[in-house]
Write a protein that binds this DNA or RNA. Structure first.
Lengths: 167, 167
DNA sequence: ATAATACGTCAGCTTTGTTGACATTCCAAG
DNA sequence: CTTGGAATGTCAACAAAGCTGACGTATTAT
């Protein structure tokens, strides 16, 4: 027999269905807040979340290939290509043919792209900063621990890979 | 100076742009995991996330009105109606005309609806439980604190209103 | 009586995802 | 050098789920 209220005194009360449900609903409502500010900015310029994600990750690892980005985002190349085409037509993203492997396209933000990225991530960071500040450093540690434990294996790998770039 | 912004001395290191960016990316990848299991189940039966949300919140407050659900989900009535119609045609949701106010429709899950809800929330809870267990009770407290601080005002109100139902 | 509310519905549009098919370009192996 | 396969791009068609706007019908409130 495992599980259950075995420890001393306080027995896994944080694992009740009630607690889990609250966590699930907190995640749902919080994610709305998380995306609300960028969504507002983007709707003004006829872009959506997909554009935001592409911009974010191109900014994070400039010179990454299309395949790389595809793996991070987890969408089909057709879907990404549509978004990327729009961004390139609007002069926010440029692609360079690879030197070692000329099949590959290396993606970069243009200055205009960087400017939009800054605008979007400033908004999103502001909210995150306010939440972090309100909750305090220990809460932030716990927040990150739970989120990381919630990821799929391959998601965590992608996340960790990004973490190593600058962080 | 190194990590671990604690109370004394070390001021707000957890609020650096790097920390915030990691939080943003953690949120992005974790939300994927959060929805992955229900998504898999739903795709087998030609439903999507919108159906899941409707089912979840009808289960949470049975007998709630359409307007009520609309407020929680934050979508248009046309969008919700499409989903609801499908669920009712498939016998997962039923609606009752209000007794006090006959304009209102009160929504309930049928037995089949409850069964699907259980299947979905079991899957989602399993993952949440694993994450909670891996991170520990203190992390869970922090997790919830940050998420709640991240919500918009009205989102928090909706979240709190649901919390009061059973929790 | 009239206005407002709650709900449903039709029509049309957008974003973002999906499959499937196919062409091009290029690297690498035989 | 030829050929197979990988990386990329693109066309077409489609679906889920959001949106706006307009309209209809009960029902309730003023």
């Amino acid at each position: 027999m495992e599980g259950g209220a075995r420890e001393t005194g306080n027995p896994l009360l944080f694992l009740t269905d009630e607690q889990l449900r609250k966590g699930i609903e907190a995640m749902f409502f919080a994610y709305r807040g998380f995306t609300a500010d960028p969504d507002r900015i983007l709707s003004d310029i006829a872009y959506g979340r997909a554009h935001h994600r592409a911009i974010h990750f191109i900014h994070r690892s400039p010179g990454g290939t299309v395949n790389n980005l595809l793996a991070i985002l987890g969408v089909t190349k057709q879907s990404l290509n549509r978004v990327l085409r729009g961004l390139m037509e609007d002069g926010l993203v440029r692609s360079e043919i690879g030197k070692r492997d000329k099949r590959e396209r290396h993606l970069y933000l243009t200055e205009a792209g960087e400017a939009l990225e800054r605008q979007l991530s400033d908004a999103q960071r502001d909210r995150m900063r306010a939440a972090y500040r309100a909750a305090g450093p220990e809460a932030v540690t716990g927040f990150r621990q739970v989120l990381e434990a919630m990821m799929d294996e391959d998601m965590r790998n992608r996340y960790d890979a990004l973490k190593d770039l600058k962080g």
